[in-house]
Design a protein around this nucleic acid. Structure first.
Lengths: 254, 254
DNA sequence: CATTGTGAAGTTCTTCACAGCC
DNA sequence: GGCTGTGAAGAACTTCACAATG
């Protein structure tokens, strides 16, 4: 049903796939490192290795931005750094507020990676009156009461939530009402926001759980070998599938 | 080159798709909340709303685990909590070490979400001799020299790297050599690991850059948004979708 | 009935492989 | 020759829609 869309955007279109956008910062970091070592050009193969992706994917990604390479040579490092920075919107300055100055909030405030790439921590905000005025990362913590004023005075459109889960939605609502349209959420909760507001979440415990899943599988497979090799009836337990009966654990509640 | 890489070639062993695994912790959290409120059953529709996903997707996800629901009724909350916990490997205890006790490492050490879900911080490790012995989150920081012994004494298979970028690969190598097979990397660098070792990365600045990309696009569309409303019947307005992923608004000026 | 479980269709992302250009 | 840019094939993921079923 998609109306006209979907066709070759060719060089100039703004139809960059989300998966590609998510990798651009990775490329940018690798390119910045090369730039600092004064490397003039890279091939897709080299850059892909540095960024930890496959070279065909990298070339495809870049093709959405335009034809920035030279066949037989590679990509000009400085030029690519600029193009990707511009595409990501990093050539302008983004004031950011961090709400919730606990351990994590303080760590974020001190994190150099923010400042290094077009982001500027405009304010630190916390609900605890005892925190107000205390310096963290060289700037005084401000009280939540002033949130709206801070947002509007600084033209903030990106907010970072590092509060406890219970406070996150409320903080989110206030940020959005005050004009913030992009939120990076560290609180372990699902945020509901109106259309037009972007939320990305970073959840430490979820990442660990995903690792645990794979870890458990490794342990369980140690002897079972690869799927291919043993075609025979796989024997024994660990068969948790929709068993017709009798794999109900002792926990089954009433 | 390009050979030593190997992320996970695909999770083909037991049939659960990676995308599904990544959502299981989300479901688990929503279910745990329901459980605490003593809700006995949920429909896919309700649970999906709580987890911020689409209900068809949730049902499909659960179908990979088995047939754990009851048609016409829904899912038994306690039973599902158990099944998902087991699938994720959270019914066992995972000792974890955190390497790099700076601001971020300390924040992680204090983060309650770890302990709450089968993970136990077995040790905090830092390269700075001045840190050694200092208590963080109620446990003494240990020196990097003892890393191998700590790993083996505690049977640690999951490591968290919160060091500066420059130290990360070296720490990673030592962790792997000592027997760690899953790594959660907070350092802004690409880690190279041997086959069989899982790495997940959390990169604060990358998340912000992705937000900036969308933010920039919004700014550019500000005027185009209104113009569109006049045309279509029904369509798009208020799609009421909100994924953790955020999606590209259907505006797209060609 | 209400709601699950799932083939099938649809969409997005990845990889291949090679034409085209320097 | 070496390397990019990209159609086309393929794989993974999502969504639809409905038959199956408690």
């Amino acid at each position: 049903m998609a109306t006209g869309r979907t066709h070759r955007p060719a060089t100039r279109s703004r139809g960059i796939p989300e998966a590609t956008v998510a990798r651009l910062p990775l490329y940018l970091r690798a390119l910045t490192a090369l730039s600092e070592r004064s490397v003039p050009t890279v091939s897709s193969e080299e850059l892909a290795a540095a960024a930890g992706v496959n070279s065909a994917k990298l070339r495809k990604d870049f093709s959405y931005l335009g034809s920035y390479g030279t066949r037989g040579v590679g990509y000009d490092v400085e030029y690519l750094v600029y193009q990707i920075s511009r595409e990501l919107g990093l050539t302008q300055d983004w004031p950011v507020v961090i709400v919730g100055i606990g351990n994590l909030g303080a760590a974020l405030a001190n994190y150099g990676g923010f400042a290094s790439r077009g982001f500027r921590v405009a304010a630190l905000i916390d609900a605890d009156p005892a925190m107000a005025g205390k310096p963290v990362a060289g700037m005084p913590v401000q009280h939540t009461d002033d949130l709206e004023k801070i947002i509007s005075d600084n033209g903030v459109s990106i907010g970072v939530i590092a509060t406890p889960a219970g406070a996150a939605q409320q903080v989110c609502d206030r940020l959005v009402a005050a004009g913030v349209t992009s939120i990076l959420n560290f609180a372990p909760t699902v945020l509901t926001v109106p259309d037009g507001v972007d939320v990305r979440k970073v959840d430490l415990s979820i990442e660990l759980q995903i690792l645990a899943f794979h870890e458990q599988r490794k342990a369980g497979e140690e002897s079972a070998a690869d799927a291919d090799a043993a075609a025979g009836p796989a024997v024994t337990k660990n068969q948790h599938r929709k068993g017709p009966d009798g794999d109900v654990p002792a926990v089954m509640p009433a």
